[in-house]
């Protein structure tokens, strides 16, 4: 499973990082860091990652088909 991050949409609300801190975090500048860019999200973090995609208030995250 891969996730795409639309950085133009992301406003740094941080709800994704609350749900899946292993997958997303905000740096000191409140910019989103996605830890698996271009790679598959490891199995053990998949369900948390799905929840994170689901809560992003501006739909900046998508699970790639």
């Amino acid at each position: 499973m891969q996730i795409s991050v639309d950085h133009a949409r992301c406003e740094g609300h941080g709800l994704c990082a609350d749900q899946a801190p292993e997958v997303f975090s905000l740096d000191d500048d409140a910019e989103l860091t996605y830890h698996f860019d271009g790679a598959d999200v490891p199995d053990e973090h998949r369900s948390a990652a799905r929840v994170a995609v689901n809560v992003c208030p501006v739909a900046a995250l998508r699970v790639l088909p």
């Binding site: 406003e11 740094g12 609300h13 941080g14 500048d29 409140a30 910019e31």
Partner: peptide, 10 residues
């Protein structure tokens, strides 16, 4: 909207 991001609001 950039004025309303958590970062700007800090």
């Amino acid at each position: 909207a950039h004025r309303l991001t958590p970062k700007a609001l800090r």
